[in-house]
């Protein structure tokens, strides 16, 4: 549903809360909280610490890792297929997504039309394939907006500290108190309709999560010994930021970005389902499902199959995010 962003965050919050309790800290506000968070992080997995040491790809290990996880392999395949569809739709179909044969409308799925045909005899599979470009574009914009703005805010908050941090984090708190979809709807009301506008609205609704994660990671890294050491030997702030803090903090944020990818696919499709996305006949996924609603009674494939495509995409990115986050690190 529409906006798992905060929900995903929420899970983490709950887990983080649990972890903090476990740590038993009745910490003070501010830095103590960050320390607690960092502590909690270590409990679960300190794998990312000096990240630079892990750059080398261990192929046999990767092979073993994947072999034990057929689901993950499948997820990667799905994502690769979707990305290919977005950039090279001609690999899948030579049919025109906008041009149909009216006399062959409402044909069910068959060898010739894998996903059937729609109300104007257009090939639904071709529409889903070409729709991947639109949906993916919107999703990438959404994630990028959240990543850049949220990550930037978190970075500044964590790195600069003091009152800047307080102000930014209070704003983030406020953003978090507005349910994501409501925030997106308010932005759509203000910005208007269209794929890009919807993408921006979705991205902004996720800014707060990125800011929080980035800040927490930056704080964690900042206090690490090797960073302290770099600073004590007189390294400039930008060099500390660029060489130590950013690369190490980035890992978590990238995991969040992967997660947010699935979340954004759902959010974008929900908004275009509500009619705020691409104008017809553009085959954006949510729009496809939405326009199939008129024919629920006589053409089930118009809603079912594009929907399954969305589900497969989101499931896959979530599975990959999970692998990136914990499994790979903890697997020995």
């Amino acid at each position: 549903m529409t906006r798992p962003t905060t929900a995903v965050g929420a899970i983490r919050a709950a887990e983080g809360a649990g972890a903090a309790e476990g740590a038993g800290a009745a910490e003070a506000a501010g830095a103590a909280e960050a320390a607690g968070a960092a502590g909690a992080a270590e409990v679960v997995g300190a794998w990312r610490e000096p990240a630079t040491a892990r750059r080398r790809v261990d192929l046999p290990r990767l092979g073993r890792f994947l072999l034990h996880r057929p689901g993950l392999v499948l997820a990667v395949i799905v994502v690769v297929l979707v990305v290919l569809a977005a950039f090279w739709p001609a690999l899948y179909t030579s049919r025109d997504p906008l041009l149909g044969v009216p006399a062959r409308r409402f044909e069910g799925p068959s060898g010739q039309h894998w996903f059937g045909t729609d109300e104007l005899g257009r090939d639904v599979f071709a529409r889903v394939v070409h729709g991947a470009a639109l949906s993916l574009k919107a999703t990438i914009i959404a994630v990028a907006v959240a990543f850049v703005i949220g990550g930037g805010l978190g970075l500044v908050a964590g790195f600069v500290g003091r009152w800047v941090e307080d102000v930014i984090m209070r704003v983030v708190d406020v953003l978090l108190s507005i349910p994501g979809l409501f925030m997106s709807l308010a932005l759509v009301t203000a910005l208007g309709y269209g794929t890009v506008k919807v993408a921006i609205a979705v991205g902004i609704a996720s800014v707060a999560s990125f800011a929080r994660v980035m800040r927490a990671e930056v704080l964690k890294v900042r206090q690490a010994t090797y960073v302290e050491a770099a600073r004590s030997i007189g390294a400039r702030w930008y060099s500390v930021l660029g060489r130590h803090v950013l690369p190490n903090a980035m890992g978590s944020v990238l995991v969040l970005a992967t997660l947010d990818f699935g979340v954004s696919v759902l959010a974008v499709s929900a908004l275009s389902f509500l009619g705020y996305g691409a104008a017809p006949p553009a085959p954006e996924w949510g729009t496809l499902i939405s326009s199939g609603r008129n024919y629920l009674a006589n053409a089930w494939w118009l809603t079912t199959l594009p929907g399954l495509t969305v589900v497969a995409t989101v499931l896959s990115t979530n599975r990959i995010a999970r692998a990136l986050d914990g499994e790979w690190a903890t697997q020995r």
């Binding site: 409402f106 109300e119 609603r293 008129n294 024919y295 629920l296 009674a297 006589n298 053409a299």
Partner: peptide, 27 residues
């Protein structure tokens, strides 16, 4: 949604519907 209107008329949830779609006439 035309499809929902059609199905609701068939199931008796409603007594009349406007704007019948061509695709639903036969049903």
């Amino acid at each position: 949604e035309a499809g929902v209107r059609t199905s609701s008329l068939q199931s008796g949830q409603v007594d009349a519907i406007g704007a019948v779609a061509q695709a639903d006439e036969a049903a």
